[in-house]
Design a protein around this nucleic acid. Structure first.
Length: 967
RNA sequence: GCGAAGGUGGCGGAAUCCGGCAGACGCGCUGGCCUUAGGAGCCAGUGCCGAUGAGGCGUGCGGGUUCGAAUCCCGCCCUUCGCACCA
């Protein structure tokens, strides 16, 4: 028989308009019963969509179709994050206005969404570049300004030399621009900031209540970077006080120097005249470094002594003040106390510059070491040590002859060792113990390395006894030369305080608290919390963004644009320049709203992340020209129930949106203070990208055999990376749809792997989906032919075993698919289950005796549960089935737990852990452990296996298995 | 270095939450059918070793708990991602 072949092009087009015209995707906004706000991150309209983008939108569309069939009142809007640099670059290169370029792309995106069958409530479409939207972005700016949360400040800012624009900290990834990956430079500029740091604590704390992927929450937590410590005040001989932040106040007595960030404002005042030139040179050199160079992990420590001293607040000791670029102005107070014994960086710095290292925290592991120099002790010492069970190994020392390498474990051994050493020590020598103890045993004295003064004393004595130590500047430098000591010279663990005056002996777990209290009692410092998070720099020196609604008046200073004058419109110009609004002379002059005198407009535009930090509120009332959003609707519909987008926004957009939401909540405009209740991050789609050294990126289709460049024949470098236009490794949905239809692309996209994981696109995989849909189509047509007459409902009571099995599998499949949509969204496994059932149904349908009512019912339910994945083919077959309503008007099928129970079950029988037999049993028997055990033991395969063995134990798990232990 | 996730066939991945037949589903591969032809379609097979047998071995490695471990516990190794001189 000749059946109609599956021809998607012939059926898909009509359903696109059908869904749209029937308004299935329009939210019933004023009916908030069973409301569900589903949101995909809105895109930046840059060119065309590729198959990688599809992952996000197709997943969303499937979820929304499911929710609609489950009876949810779904709000599923779409809009455009339409301001941004690429539009401006295109404008500069092609002479098109950014707005025209943007809208051309938007039209293209919408066409592609429609082709995919991805539908939205288009009545709510918004674009951030339109005045009716950015008016309210400006309004939010004014509100922040009113509350002191938007401010202008001069400072070192991140500058991308390629994009010629400043960047927020979040937009610098590993020292490079988030957009173009150029190394970021520092520039001193006056810019606008949002005081997001005022919300640091709440942004951190409220992560707890979010149903977000753990790793995303962790990334935000790390970004906010809360640390508890103390702020300690160090007086200086020159006068000004230096405030330092430390997370280890318990190491205070080990502070042997201070380091300020080179940019620290006190530096000029604290610099001694003779050091001025060196200090200035160092500050200038630091200035020139890019962020990347400055923070390169392996870089050797550099720094300059200011020539002046601070006074240690606890000991009164004079300690030198340095500047070094490893101290950052933007964190803490921009100044640290150098505790080289217990901070890795300070340790390196002290070794490099010969600053004393004074241990003040005991080693918790009790480990100590001692090197006995040749001739330092009388013969018999080694034997004496061994008699005490002390580990000592003879070996050459400093190329001067045989000595001893001693390892001591615990205080008892150390004490005993010191006693023995005193007994055996030769005149004119010394012996030291380092690690757990810091003792220097001389003929006439036992000295401890417990202060900078002791450091000088000990070193002087050692140099006297051993003149070759002459060039060493500190005891630590001397010890560090001894390879054997390396692992005990430094540690950063908590432990009992030593060498710490009145607080010596404080145990590690109390040390932080005790020292902080001690400082507070004396007014020397206080408990403090610091965050890594910095304020959000939002000024951009570009044209294509929302103008900052501020006016600079020579008399009144900075004056906000009155609300009634919003929006501050982007000037309509045919040509834009590189400087942005500053290039457009007619934009700048205005009138001061306060004094009516001549004034200048602010020429910066806002970071596009400001536009996207509140768009989810605008969808509720996209055309409201009286206010940014309708509080009543917003409070009824938000927070967003499910937000889906890429992980690349884990910090940037998601942190900013949380901040703005909390701010609007504090203004009393929002009842909620977190915008996105549940977040799902889908993985990127990768594809091979080919690089030719001369012709750069080559589209995969043009690559010649043997990975050769089509232009020059050079061998290409292949890398599998996220699809992107710039790397030319995109797969076009337009071509896929022309060849296979939208359903095939949708099905493959949802089937290729767990949606949260990154995955490589596979042409063969697409064909697999295509084959499945062909088989499915043929099966459906077969069932349609066979069941033309069958209109009555199924009668499970009349089922034979085969019918019963099909029926049970159908219900198991409905259950599986339903649970995936409602739970973890591993839709790849839902598709697999549907395929599995389709095979089973196919097999059953081949039997001419098959029950037509069951075939029809199975097909009907199958169409419904497959429809979120492949809506076109399902809608088509659904209507051929003679159903009057559309699929989206039909309830999602329910599964019957009773039906899941098959009449017969297979029970594996294990003997000593290996499956040796399988029994097919009626459920009633399998449910009874006694009967199960008896049946299992009676089975012939089991009997023969048990020959000569004694059954020791039988475990019968009802309806699961039988396990026999036999010896 | 810190933090997180993860190691299962030739490949993508199921089963992991809650221990109970490992390898669902798809790709690829092998054989067959159909076709003038196939990079189309259909059917069958496909973890590894073994001979198509009996059998044995198998979820990164080593140990443990258990009648039974991919799954739970302890110790390693490796990979990926994020952060990284943050005091």
């Amino acid at each position: 028989m000749n059946r109609e072949p599956y021809h998607p092009q012939a059926i898909e087009e009509k359903w696109r308009d059908f869904w749209r015209e029937r308004g299935f995707f329009k939210a019933k906004i004023h009916d908030a019963r069973r409301k569900f706000y589903y949101l995909n991150m809105f895109p930046y309209p840059s060119g065309k969509l590729h198959a990688g983008h599809g992952r996000n939108y197709i997943l969303g569309d499937a979820i929304v179709r499911f929710l609609l069939m489950r009876g949810w009142n779904v709000l599923n809007p779409m809009g455009w994050d339409a301001f941004g640099l690429p539009a401006e670059n295109a404008a500069l290169e092609q002479g098109i206005h950014p707005r025209d370029w943007t809208w051309t792309n938007i039209r293209e995106f919408k066409r592609q969404f429609r082709a995919w069958g991805v539908e939205y409530d288009w009545d709510r479409e918004i674009a951030t570049c339109e005045p009716d939207y950015y008016k309210w972005t400006q309004w939010i700016f004014l509100k922040l300004y009113e509350k002191g949360l938007a401010y202008r400040a001069k400072g070192k800012v991140n500058w991308c030399p390629h994009c010629e624009v400043v960047l927020a900290n979040e937009q610098v990834i590993g020292g490079r621009c988030w957009r173009c990956h150029s190394p970021v430079e520092k520039r001193e500029l006056e810019q606008w900031y949002f005081r997001i740091t005022a919300y640091a604590e709440r942004l951190l704390r409220d992560l707890e209540k979010l149903d977000w992927p753990e790793h995303v929450k962790k990334m935000q937590e790390n970004w906010i970077g809360r640390s508890e410590g103390a702020e300690i005040v160090f007086p200086t001989e020159k006068g000004p006080e230096i405030r330092v932040f430390t997370t280890r106040p318990d190491t205070l007595w080990g502070a042997t120097f201070l380091v300020l960030a080179p940019e620290h404002p006190l530096v000029p005042e604290l610099t001694a005249p003779e050091q001025r030139a060196a200090v200035e040179a160092y500050r200038a050199a630091t200035d020139r470094l890019t962020e990347m160079e400055r923070t390169a992990a392996e870089k050797e420590k550099t720094g300059v002594f200011l020539g002046t001293y601070a006074l240690h607040p606890a000991t009164g000791e004079r300690i030198p003040i340095w500047i070094a670029d490893y101290v950052l102005m933007g964190y803490g107070t921009g100044a640290i106390m150098g505790v080289p014994a217990h901070d890795e960086r300070d340790f390196q710095f002290a070794l490099r510059f010969g600053l004393p290292v004074i241990p003040v925290i005991d080693r918790p592991d009790g480990l100590a070491k001692s090197v006995v120099r040749p001739g330092a002790v009388r013969p018999g010492f080694l034997e004496a040590l061994r008699a005490e069970g002390i580990e000592a190994r003879p070996g050459p020392v400093d190329g001067e002859g045989q000595g001893l390498y001693v390892t001591l474990r615990g205080d008892a051994q150390i004490d005993r060792y010191l006693e023995l050493a005193r007994e055996y020590l030769q005149p004119g020598h010394w012996c030291e113990v380092v690690g757990r103890r810091w003792a220097f045993l001389f003929e006439d004295a036992l000295l401890f390395l417990d202060s900078p003064a002791s450091d000088r004393r000990i070193l002087a004595r050692c140099q006297k006894l051993k003149p070759t130590l002459g060039e060493k500047r500190t005891v630590m430098e001397m010890l560090y030369a001894q390879e054997f000591y390396r692992d005990v010279l430094f540690h950063a663990a908590y432990g009992t305080m030593i060498h710490s005056g009145p607080l010596s002996g404080t145990p590690g777990e109390e040390a932080f608290r005790r020292v902080t209290a001690w400082l507070e009692e004396r007014g020397l410092g206080k408990f403090a919390v610091t965050y890594k998070l910095r304020d959000w720099l939002i000024s951009r020196q570009r044209y294509w963004g929302a103008p900052i609604p501020m006016i600079h008046c020579p008399r009144c200073g900075i004056v906000p644009v009155p609300e009634k004058d919003l929006p501050v419109l982007l000037p309509a110009v045919d040509r834009i320049g590189k400087l942005g609004l500053a290039d457009i002379p007619e934009f700048i002059p205005t009138v001061c709203p306060r004094c009516a005198g001549p004034a200048r407009r602010d020429t910066d535009t806002m970071d596009t992340f400001v536009d996207s930090s509140w768009y989810f509120l605008r969808f509720l009332s996209p055309k409201d020209d009286a206010r940014p959003f309708d509080p009543e609707l917003v409070n009824r519909w938000l927070p967003v129930d499910l937000y889906v987008g890429g992980v690349e926004h884990a910090i940037l957009h998601l942190l900013y949106a949380r901040f703005i939401t909390k701010f609007l909540h504090d203004l009393g405009l929002l009842a909620f203070d977190e915008p996105f209740k549940r977040l799902f991050t889908q993985g990127m789609v990768t594809y091979p990208a080919y690089w030719c050294p001369t012709h750069h990126w080559i589209p995969p289709k043009e690559v010649q055999a043997g990975n050769r460049c089509p232009k020059c024949g050079a061998e290409l470098v292949v890398s599998v990376v996220a699809m992107s236009k710039s790397k030319k490794n995109v797969v076009s949905p337009d071509e896929l749809i022309a060849q296979y239809g939208a359903d095939t692309e949708r099905l493959y996209t949802l089937f290729m792997g767990p949606p949260e994981k990154e995955i490589e696109w596979s042409e063969e995989g697409v064909r697999g989906a295509w084959r499945f849909l062909n088989r499915f189509w043929n099966l459906a047509l077969l069932i349609l032919e066979r069941t033309r007459e069958a209109r009555e409902e199924v009668d499970p009571a009349a089922f034979g075993p085969r019918e019963q099995a099909v029926w049970a599998k159908l219900h198991a499949t409905i259950k599986k698919v339903t649970e995936e949509f409602e739970g973890r969204l591993a839709l790849n496994t839902a598709v697999a289950a549907i395929m599995e059932f389709t095979h089973a149904l196919s097999e059953y349908a081949e039997d001419p005796q098959a029950d037509p009512r069951l075939l029809r019912r199975a097909l009907r339910d199958l169409l419904l549960i497959l429809s979120p994945f492949t809506p076109f083919i399902c809608e088509e077959l659904w209507h051929r089935l003679g159903e009057g309503r559309a699929i989206l008007e039909t309830p999602w099928p329910a599964y019957d737990p009773q039906a899941l129970e098959e009449a017969e079950v297979e029970i594996p029988v294990q003997i000593n852990g290996k499956v040796r037999a399988r029994l097919r049993l009626p459920r009633a028997q399998a449910a009874d452990p006694k009967a199960l055990e008896a049946l299992a033991l009676a089975a012939p395969e089991v009997q023969s296996r048990l020959q000569g063995l004694r059954v020791e134990k039988v475990i019968a798990v009802p309806e699961k298995l039988v396990s026999i232990v036999a010896r």
